[in-house]
Design a protein around this nucleic acid. Sequence first.
DNA 1: AATTCCCACAACCGCCTAACA
DNA 2: CTGTTAGGCGGTTGTGGGAAT
Length: 268
Amino acid sequence: MGRAPCCDKANVKKGPWSSEEDTKLKEFIDKFGTGGNWIALPHKAGLKRCGKSCRLRWLNYLRPNIKHGEFSDEEDRVICSLFAAIGSRWSIIAAQLPGRTDNDIKNYWNTKLKKKLLGTAPSQKKPNQHQHQQQQQLFFPSTSPLPSFPQDLLSSLLLQAPLPPVSEQYQISFGGGGGGGNEQSCSSSEISYGNKDQQLDHYEHMGFNDNSYITTLYGGSATAAAGAGSLAWGSSELAPLEYDYEEIKQLISNPSSNYNNTSYYFCG
DNA sequence: AATTCCCACAACCGCCTAACA
DNA sequence: CTGTTAGGCGGTTGTGGGAAT
């Protein structure tokens, strides 16, 4: 027996949303909120849509403060760096770019950014040396390594520990960028959490003051990892530059390659 | 002017997981 | 503890519009 469908597919409209549907959905949510139940919402709002579809439409298009249009170089750098560190965790990446949705970033990455990085625009299959150099400078204008966020910390947060356990001491050491074991410590700190609120305070203090992040920090590992990214970036005036062009390019070309090749460590 | 091709983006699908009864 | 359900996520597909032929 398969999984029960989330809605009656026969009586549900699919395809692009009309402006009338948008208006209905927006007005309903403005008035009553989502009620925490997307499945029931379309019926209440008088829409012949699947609840999931409504949710997606709201989150990706109708919700206030959605940013449409061109991505800035700064946003490009954040996306590249996070992609290199944590892969295609679009929701985490989106959490670092206010106003951008995971779908937006995913589309942008797949259709533009990846090609830009690889230099494989349709009319530019093989860029010459000069073009290649220009591209690299566009995305990574700085040549000096900047502090990176702790990649092993990210991995362990993502894969194992949802959050550093309460009342446990950690020393987090940040190595230098560039990978390959070229360790150059740029900061370290001892963290001790008496309770989860203190833990949150600490995260906040370390630089992740994004409300959405703080709100969802309790939620689990993924968001915690996103926060760890901010943690390292918080004090940096420049945009983070975790990986050089070649490293990201390699990751794109060879998805199976190990993300974890730097010398950060995270010890109890 | 008509047709084909390509690209960008919106939307869908199916899986995973947390919450809850 | 177990089964069910809904929310969330990432991958994939569909569609419309513009460019090229």
